[in-house]
Amino acid sequence: MSGRQVSGRFTGYAALFDRVDRAGDVIRAGAFGEPRTVPLLWQHRGEPVGRASVHEDRRGLAVDGIIDDPALAAAVRGGAVAGLSVGYRPRAVRQGANRELTAVDLVEVSLVAIPMQSLARVAQFFT
């Protein structure tokens, strides 16, 4: 266990399957592979502000996150920050009307002000 103080925990979805995002990409079920833990970032930048345990379910990439940064945890708790997003490297892509991502290497999950997928959001926050 880390020596860092946990400021909050949350659940939500960092990506939803079969939905076109603001960049025209569509992530397909199975793209993320096996459950794992990845760094949690703020806006895809800087040092980790926590960690995110992720797994696929029928809806998308479910996240159980831990926020170590007290100010960011307070913003999430208060509803000022609710967006989630994924940082990835595409491994398998099909090009059609939209770019379909069928396999990706997940690098990180980020809390963001404006998510690429409008429904990629924090669902619950716990202290």
Rank of each mutant, 00 (worst) to 15 (best):
Y13F: 15
M1T: 14
P35W: 01
G78V: 07
L61W: 07
A15I: 07
L41V: 03
R89C: 00
A92I: 02
E56T: 04
A75C: 13
Q117T: 07
V107N: 02
L84Y: 02
Q95I: 10
V54N: 08
R51G: 11
R9F: 11
A92W: 06
R94H: 14
I67K: 05
E108I: 05
A52F: 00
A74E: 15
S2P: 01
S110E: 08
L84T: 04
R4T: 11
I66K: 07
R99T: 15
A73H: 08
Q5D: 11
H55D: 06
A103N: 04
A97G: 15
A73T: 09
L16S: 00
V49N: 03
R77N: 02
F17D: 03
M1N: 12
G12Q: 08
A92G: 03
A71S: 13
A62P: 00
V104N: 09
V54P: 05
E47Q: 12
S110Y: 04
G30A: 06
V20W: 03
P39C: 08
T102Y: 02
V76L: 07
R77K: 15
V6L: 07
L101R: 09
F125N: 05
L61M: 07
V104M: 08
P39Y: 08
Q43R: 12
P35A: 10
G30T: 00
P39K: 05
